[in-house]
Amino acid sequence: MTLFDGALVAFAGLLCGIVNSIAGGGSLILFPALLGTGMSSLSANVTNSVATWPGYLGGVVGFRDEIRSQRKRLPPLVVATLAGSTVGCVLLLVTPEGAFDVVVPFLVLFASGLTALQPWAKRRMAKGAATGERPSRAAVGGIFVAALYGGYFGGALGVIIVGVLGLTVHDTFRRLNAGKSLLSLVDASVSVTVFGLFGPVEWQFAAVAAPSTLLGGFLGAKVAKRLDEKVLRACVVGFGVLVSIYLLIRAL
């Protein structure tokens, strides 16, 4: 790892943490930065999954009170997340790298689209009323599919989970966002375990990016009220579209 590569990944990790804290979709910044170091798309994907784990942990700590108040709802969703993420990780590891190179541009484009739709999910959740009921089958099934995607790719996973919860659970945005933080951490923990044991993780880059994503998450929480979330989200979405076009051209 050159000094330039280390600085690039550290800076991208910092931005990733900030964007995840404010708008979501930060992986769309770190993933292409890892590709920029010459890493293969598969290695960049699994390294990205490992490096973003600390940021999810920080989110859970920040929402610990809201998470404790959802003891009836969250356990079935955690189980669904564990199952879905495990299946997704295994599918990724058995996918030939050439096939993944073809699929990944469309995954990045899909993640960018979901990031663009996040305000709609927020408005949908804001209409809910707090409840402590157990989740419906639709919620459990939706979270399983979201976690499967998270285990396979992971870009904009938080946005997907927010959307699923917004459609299937009636509650306040803050409480559902807290649940999203816990489920994202569970998904990321499975990815760290599976990819750490069996995946081509570039550990030197993960060691550089992980603390910077954690720092970015804290900074993002501090400056969230001062930034225009719409502008930041538009930048992330536009960047994601450009990355997907570049990856598609490279795969062809």
Rank of each mutant, 00 (worst) to 15 (best):
G58A: 06
G59C: 03
V61K: 11
V61M: 14
V61W: 14
G62Q: 11
G62E: 08
R64P: 14
E66Y: 13
I67Q: 01
R68Q: 10
S69G: 12
R73M: 15
R73H: 10
L74V: 04
P76T: 14
L77T: 06
L77A: 07
V79E: 08
T81W: 11
L82H: 11
L82M: 13
A83Q: 08
G88H: 00
G88W: 10
C89Q: 09
V90D: 05
L93T: 04
V94E: 00
V94C: 06
T95E: 04
E97K: 02
G98A: 09
G98P: 10
G98M: 00
G98K: 02
A99D: 14
A99Y: 02
F100A: 11
D101A: 15
D101W: 06
V104S: 15
P105V: 04
L107A: 05
L107T: 00
V108K: 11
V108N: 07
L109I: 03
A111R: 06
A111I: 00
S112I: 02
S112A: 05
G113E: 05
G113Q: 07
L114W: 13
T115N: 04
A116S: 12
A116L: 15
P119G: 06
P119Q: 10
W120C: 03
K122W: 11
R123N: 14
R123F: 03
R123E: 12
K127F: 08
G128S: 09
G128Y: 01
A129T: 13
A130N: 03
A130H: 03
A130M: 02
G132W: 04
E133Y: 07
R134N: 08
R134Y: 13
P135M: 03
A139G: 07
V140L: 13
G142Q: 08
I143E: 11
V145Q: 06
V145P: 03
A146N: 09
A147N: 01
L148F: 13
L148H: 11
L148N: 05
Y149K: 14
G150F: 11
G150I: 06
G150Q: 07
G151L: 13
G151Q: 12
F153T: 05
F153R: 08
G155A: 15
G155P: 15
G155Y: 11
G155R: 12
A156N: 04
A156C: 05
A156R: 12
L157P: 03
V162Q: 13
G163I: 00
G163H: 08
V164D: 01
G166H: 05
T168E: 11
V169D: 13
H170V: 10
F173K: 07
R174G: 02
N177P: 06
N177R: 00
N177W: 10
A178Q: 00
S181I: 05
S181E: 01
L182W: 00
L182P: 09
L183I: 01
L185T: 03
V186C: 06
D187S: 14
D187R: 09
A188R: 05
A188V: 02
A188N: 07
S189L: 13
V190T: 10
V190Q: 12
S191K: 15
T193I: 15
T193Q: 12
V194I: 14
V194Y: 14
V194K: 12
G196N: 09
G196P: 04
L197C: 07
F198L: 10
F198T: 05
G199H: 12
E202L: 10
E202C: 11
